[in-house]
Design a binder for these strands. Sequence first.
DNA 1: ATTAGCACTCAGGTATAATGAGTGCTAATA
DNA 2: TATTAGCACTCATTATACCTGAGTGCTAAT
Lengths: 351, 351
Amino acid sequence: MKKTEAHQRNLDERESSILRALVYDYIITGKAVGSRSFVQKYSFSISPATMRNVMFDLEVMGFLIQPHTSAGRIPTDKGYRFYVDSLLDTYDFTLNEDFVVNEDQIKRELQLDKVFTSITRMLATISQYAGIMLTPRPDFAVVKRVELVPLDVNEILFILVTRTGIVINKKVFISGSVTQDDLYNYSKFLSSELCGFDLREIRDSIFNNLRSVSGMGENKAMALDIAQLALGEHKGPEIFIDGIENLLRIPEMVEETRLNSLLNIIEEKNLLREILEHSMDSPGVQTMIGNEIPEAKVAGCSLVTSSYKIGNRNVGALGVIGPTRMDYEKVVPLVDYTGRVVSDFLTKMSK
Amino acid sequence: MKKTEAHQRNLDERESSILRALVYDYIITGKAVGSRSFVQKYSFSISPATMRNVMFDLEVMGFLIQPHTSAGRIPTDKGYRFYVDSLLDTYDFTLNEDFVVNEDQIKRELQLDKVFTSITRMLATISQYAGIMLTPRPDFAVVKRVELVPLDVNEILFILVTRTGIVINKKVFISGSVTQDDLYNYSKFLSSELCGFDLREIRDSIFNNLRSVSGMGENKAMALDIAQLALGEHKGPEIFIDGIENLLRIPEMVEETRLNSLLNIIEEKNLLREILEHSMDSPGVQTMIGNEIPEAKVAGCSLVTSSYKIGNRNVGALGVIGPTRMDYEKVVPLVDYTGRVVSDFLTKMSK
DNA sequence: ATTAGCACTCAGGTATAATGAGTGCTAATA
DNA sequence: TATTAGCACTCATTATACCTGAGTGCTAAT
C-alpha cells in the first residue's frame, strides 16, 4: 500500500492510545519517536515490529510523518488535532495553579485596560507561551452615563461610562458655541435617554427614535448631534499580546524559518484580530493547529482560544499562542478556565 | 609592550581616521577588519604592515579587540564610543527621510497615547531597530480643567484634562453621599482653583494654600478631599516599545547569549524606565554603548536616547535600542530630530 | 618611521568514515 | 490472520583529518 493514498477510517482502541502516547511523547521530548524505545518507555505489550506496522498505518492515514527515512515519527497537524480532540472529551476543568483574580482590587481600578493587561500576562506566565486577548466589543457595551465637558470654545469632551466601568472619551468639534450650563443639561438628557442601551442599539435605532419624537426642542437636537458625532466612528476592539519572550525561549521557534512566521503573526495584529473575532462567535475552547490558522503562511504555530461573555452574549476572546508542539493538556484547560473567569467577572461588573 | 597595560593618550590624526574608518567598516559589514583588505578598500597610503602596527596600538589602548589570534579587529565598546563622540561633533541635523507629523490630524485625536504609539513606531521603522518612548511626566502636566461625574451612590469619576490634551480619569470612593448638583459646583471650584498649575505644584502647595484660607465652606473642603484622593497616588510615566521584530532580524542578536540579554531588557521594563528617566534630565542626544548601560548584564546592545521638552522643561525621553554595531550615523540624527519634533509638538499643544 | 618578507595561527570548509537509531520487508510462528 | 524475529538498508549526526586563506607578529632592510 502506498503511503500517499490516505485511507480514512476510525482508529481502533490500540491505534488511538498509541497515537495519543506518541503525540504526548513528542510534545514532551521534541524528538522524533522511534518504535523500539517507544514500546519500552510506555510498556506497550507489543513488539517494536508491530509498533512499526501500526505507525505505518497511522502515517498512511495522515496522522504521522517521518522527517526523513530512517527517522522516527512526529505528529502532523492532523495528529495534533486528534490528540487535542480526544483530550477535550475528557479533560478536567479544575486547575491546580493558584490563579485568582482579586476582584476587589480590580473594582477600584477604573482602567479596565489594566485588567486586560494582567489577564494577558497571566495567560502568558502560566502557559509559558504567549497570551492574547481581544477586548470586549464596544458595540455591546451598555451605557451607564454620559457626560459632556467643555474644553474650548468649540471643542467638547464627550465622556461615556459603561456598566462594566469602561470610560470612553472622545473630542467633538462643533461649529456653534454652547454654554457650560447647556452642556450640563445635554448631559442629563443624554444620560437618561441612552442609559441601559448598548452602543449598537443606540446607533441603529435609538438616535432615530429620539429624533422622530415630535416637538423636540432645539437643545435636544444639539445634544443628539454631539452624541452622534462622538459615537460615529467606532474604534474596534483592541488586541493585547504578552509573553513573546517565552516563544523565543523555545529552540525550535527561533530556527530561521519559524521565526519569520512568528514575526508575521505578531506584526500583523490584524490577522490575529480577525481570528479572535471569529472565534468570539463560538462558545468554549477552540484550537487551531498549524495550517488550520487561516490565511497565514504560518508553520509550527498553534492557537488555543476561548470566547468570553457578558451575560449570555459573547463579547470577546482570549487565548494562547505557542508552537504546534504545545502542552495542550495544560493550555486547553487554562484557556477555558480563564475564559470563564473573565466572563463571570465582566458579567458581575455590568450589573 | 604588553597589550594589557593600556596606555592612555590622545589619538593622533592618522589613528583617529583609521579608527573611525574601521568602526564604520565593521558597522557596515559586520566582519572583523583585517589590515590588507582594509588598507586597499579605504585607499590608505600606508602598507598593511604599518596598518597592523597602528591597529596594535589601538588595541593596546583598548579601542579594538581580536576575536581570536589571526583574525582581524573589531571595535570594543570604547571604540564605538570614540566613533560616536567624534560623530557627534560634526553630524548634520537635517534628515532626508520624509518624516512628517501631521499635527492637524493629531489635534483631533484625543488620545495622546496614539501619538506616542506612532512616534515609537516611527522610530522603529526608520531606524530598523527598536523604538522606545517614555511618556511625559504627569508631574509637570498643567491642569486645564477638572470635572466630577457621579458614578454610583458613593463613587465618583474624577476627570482631569491637561493643557496638552491628556485626560486623566480616576475613580474615587467617598463615605458620604453628594448630589449631582454638588459635584457640578465642586467641578467649577476645582477647575478655577487648579487651572494653570502643574500636578506637582498642586500636590506640594496648592492644596495646603487653599485649605489654609480662612472661612472655607464645608463644600469646598469636600471638593478638595476628592481631588486630593484622586491625585494621591500618581502613576509614573508609561513606556512604549515597538519594533522588537527588527532586532530579531539581526543575526548576531539571535545568537544564544545575546538573545537572553535582549529579552532581559524588554521584559524588565523598569530598567528601561530608569534609564530613560535618567536620560530625561540631560538635554540632547545621549548614547549608551554595551556595558555603559547601567546595572544590566547586557552585552551587544546600545541605546541612543534624547530627552524632549514642553516649553523649556524636560518632561520625557525617547530613543532607539539596537546592537552595539548600530548605524549610529543614521540613528543619532534620527533620535535627535525626533526629540525636537516631539518637543515642538507638545509645546505647541500646551499653549 | 615605514615596509617587505616570512613563519605561524586558526576558523571555516570539505571529504571521509564510523556510529547508531531508525526503517521496511520477509519468513516463521501462535 | 495478526504478531514477531531477523536482517539488510538508510541516513542524520558526529568525529577525524586535511586544506585553504585571511589574518597575525616579528625581524631586518630601507
